[in-house]
């Protein structure tokens, strides 16, 4: 890599398709988890007897969700700025795997942050807390770190002894999180509307699979993937 040209290319060009598809898929996965918000949106629609309540709830919930992701992304980027990416991956991977195992054992713990009478601000706060406590942002760690690495450009990384260049990564994960959140919002809104209009409440009794277990498994997988990527 010695003598390579600086690869400070346009973010759109450097954000490769793979991580973006991964982030979109994870967005869809987050969107389908009732604990992330579509269920709350349905219940508010029913309570207020107004389908518009579903739309506005999903928007507020997405804002809270993306805020939580942003916190994680900033922490990871700052970590990558000061510490070699290898060690960021090791730390994130170990934490994620441990958190997944913890959730697997205690997946049923839920706090009562709000009630049924909620303002937009309550929904943002609720969604932020739910996403954070469920490790929604952390689950994106392997992809985000990859994206940040791609964003900085591998040669550049070498040049900086494995450290990230923040100006490039900001643009990369900006695009990444937008893609993720749009995917989540779409899936969330679709499920909420289908349950509200077509399936009805009775669907919850049969169709509400134990996503919490799936979620814990996803956290563990993300942890292992992050660890693996550290050694590639």
């Amino acid at each position: 890599m010695l003598g390579a040209l600086p690869v400070h290319a346009e973010p759109a060009a450097i954000a490769t398709l793979g991580p973006l598809i991964g982030l979109a898929a994870l967005g869809a996965f987050h969107g389908m988890n009732p604990a992330m918000g579509w269920l709350f949106a349905v219940s508010l629609g029913l309570q207020r007897e107004n389908v518009r309540a579903i739309g506005s709830a999903v928007l507020y919930i997405s804002l809270g969700h993306v805020a939580s992701l942003l916190v994680v992304a900033v922490v990871l980027a700052l970590a990558g700025y000061f510490v070699p990416l290898f060690w960021v991956r090791i730390a994130a991977g170990v934490f994620l795997t441990g958190f997944g195992i913890y959730k697997l054992a205690l997946y049923y713990r839920h706090f009562r942050w709000v009630g049924m009478n909620v303002s937009g601000r309550d929904l943002i706060a609720w969604s932020f807390l739910m996403a954070t406590s469920h490790g929604a942002g952390l689950m994106l760690a392997p992809v985000i770190l990859n994206l940040e690495e791609e964003g900085a450009g591998a040669p550049d990384l070498d040049h900086h002894a494995g450290l990230l260049d923040l100006s490039d990564t900001a643009a990369a994960w900006g695009i990444g999180l937008t893609v993720h959140t749009l995917a989540m919002l779409t899936v969330m809104l679709a499920i909420a509307l289908i349950v509200y209009r077509k399936l009805g409440l009775a669907f919850l009794r049969r169709g509400w699979l134990n996503v919490d277990l799936l979620w814990s498994a996803a956290l563990i997988l993300a942890g292992l993937a992050t660890l693996t990527l550290a050694f590639l």
Binding site: P34, A35, L39, F40, V42, S43, L44, Y107, Y108, R109, H110, F111, R112, W113, V114, G115, M116, V118, W126, L204, W208, N210, D212
Partner: peptide, 11 residues
């Protein structure tokens, strides 16, 4: 347990 803001339906 089905309440949307603190769901744990698999208790």
């Amino acid at each position: 347990s089905l309440c949307p803001y603190a769901p744990h339906p698999h208790l």
